[in-house]
Design a binder for these strands. Sequence first.
DNA 1: AACTAACTTCTACGGAGTGTAGAACAATTT
DNA 2: AAATTGTTCTACACTCCGTAGAAGTTAGTT
Lengths: 123, 123
Amino acid sequence: MASLGELERAVMDLLWETQEAVTANTLRDLLAQRPSQGEEAKELAVTTVLTVLSRLEKKGLVERERGIRPHRYQAVTSRAEHTAELMHEVLGTATDREAVLARFIGSVSDGEAATLRKLLGRD
Amino acid sequence: MASLGELERAVMDLLWETQEAVTANTLRDLLAQRPSQGEEAKELAVTTVLTVLSRLEKKGLVERERGIRPHRYQAVTSRAEHTAELMHEVLGTATDREAVLARFIGSVSDGEAATLRKLLGRD
DNA sequence: AACTAACTTCTACGGAGTGTAGAACAATTT
DNA sequence: AAATTGTTCTACACTCCGTAGAAGTTAGTT
């Protein structure tokens, strides 16, 4: 259960940008200013945003504060963390993990290769 | 257009294992011996397998030889290559690629870290 | 307390993707 | 030509996602 729809993705992106916990109304407004891709951004109904947030909560990506009345939502993990998890999920528990990694780093930019070297430390 | 269904995945796994081009009937038989997960493996109709193969062909993951009569199907890329592509897709074109890589590397096994060091070459 | 405004949950529907396979059509074998 | 084998078409049910109105709940106002 990993993939997100387009709107779900847009919401997560906003939650990842604004590190704070925000309300559904705020998100609706933020979404309205965001022409997702070529498409004119139209005002969504708040219930739409709420539905999406509920689904994201069920998926474990979003956490909500139920105490205060306009509930506030925030991402459970950072985007980087989430993406890294996804990458591991894709890598999987296969027997050929190393082969995959070989192909993977084969097409990584030079700069990123350098970063990786730094992160891995010299032996 | 990256994700696969459960049956599609099972078919791809078989095509990746048997490096050869195989027929739909062969695949049906192979699938029958494969209890996907806890579930008792039942015999699927050949048309089911054919439908899945067509869809995989449309997705560019499978190639078929139309010359001979029982068409033969094979994977276009190796599993390792495909998985590596998926990983890049997940990594995406975000601004925080390096942050993602950092998290990713952080949870890679020691042996794999060593492999990566080797692949990246010492500086 | 009753009323109202804001907010949340429930229910729903249409479209896309997937698993599944029969019906109809095409080619090969006997 | 008839029978067999193989492929394509069509179809349906189920899940996920975008979308939102209807109904229910909470809080603020009179």
